[in-house]
Design a protein around this nucleic acid. Sequence first.
DNA 1: ATGACTTGCGACATTGATGTTGCAAGTATC
DNA 2: GATACTTGCAACATCAATGTCGCAAGTCAT
Lengths: 217, 217
Amino acid sequence: MAVLRRTLVRSAPITGRKGSASMALPASTKPLRADAERTVRTILEAAERVLAANPAATMEQIAEAAGVARTTVHRRFASREALITALAAWATQRFHDAVEAARPDTAPPAVALHQVTANVLRVKIGWGFAMGALPTDAPEVARVHADVLAQCERLFARARDAGLLPADADLDWARRVYYALIHEAAAQSPDTDAAMDALASRVVDTLLHGVGKPATP
Amino acid sequence: MAVLRRTLVRSAPITGRKGSASMALPASTKPLRADAERTVRTILEAAERVLAANPAATMEQIAEAAGVARTTVHRRFASREALITALAAWATQRFHDAVEAARPDTAPPAVALHQVTANVLRVKIGWGFAMGALPTDAPEVARVHADVLAQCERLFARARDAGLLPADADLDWARRVYYALIHEAAAQSPDTDAAMDALASRVVDTLLHGVGKPATP
DNA sequence: ATGACTTGCGACATTGATGTTGCAAGTATC
DNA sequence: GATACTTGCAACATCAATGTCGCAAGTCAT
């Protein structure tokens, strides 16, 4: 009962109770038909929207927002939990891509910092619920988060070595402040790319220099 | 189990039940017996603990954590929603007191900033759920939050005028960063008073100067 | 065009949480 | 010590959400 089912997306009609376990994104089973795949995405997008507004939303509300029947949601996702898990997996993939795209391990720290910020911000605005407050015990999701965490730590270490941070900086605190700032900034939901970049700049600037008056003796 | 079920945002709050409007606050009715008052506090504290760990916890879990029968919880709080509301009201009071105690309107900005931070941190650690992620439509709660917000804005304005912040600082952004930092810091849960003050110092320092290397050419 | 797949709809079973009530036994308060 | 309150227990009643199933009608792929 408490066992979270690994069944994320049903690729075939459900037969038994706990039988059909099809893996997450790289669906190892059968490719869905075009229309079915579209439905899955529609449902995921609706779920993000609805759950962001109300984390306790029912399957029916999600179905309604997606413009499908409730039974269809259950046909595609074995359970409510499976839907949430799939949602997390989906968003996590985007998250990972966003970080990767910034080449945080090779680009100059200052550049990477800005780029990562902007990219992650973009994802977080569209998939805030899926990324945020959900206890991801999921197998694949946790791995990606750990991976991103490691990349983040490496980036901060490089930033320190490059002189952006003091030599004795508490990198863990720095990282957490960074996360918090991104989280806060994501609430702004800028509409244009320019606003996006401006926001990212503001996050990085605040991270490095705070909001106080620079000391000018 | 689904970890994210019913928050208080039930989208369909309308049950056939007639409005059994028994107010949550100990205000207008009779003073409870010493007995009962203690149970109320015990339940509130248990609720905070349990709900912080799992926002979708059931009344039964809360009752169990409080060491009372489930029916007793229902006797003291008309409904789940009433319990949450009472919890929010209780925590909000603490919050308000914490801010007031720092005399943010009269103490020197730098002092007030540190004091407010430390005080609020203390409350937020013990009553994190009640203060945090809950859409308090409650009448009294919203008022207090608005009040604190105003105090915070005044404090930041004074800080700017005192030269702590640049003259053209975006006070709204500053305040939001401040909130975010406090929220993040509260996750640390320091045990001693010394750690408490150290954490507050760190928050204020980070707020003003960030985590970057100070420019010293 | 044919066959396989997908969806909406209606109906059903199940479960878990909520909220009530009555009563006996225990406690505070005067 | 009498009275009024409070609690635990056990038994209800209710209800909303989940999850299943079969079938008819529609859609996709080849």
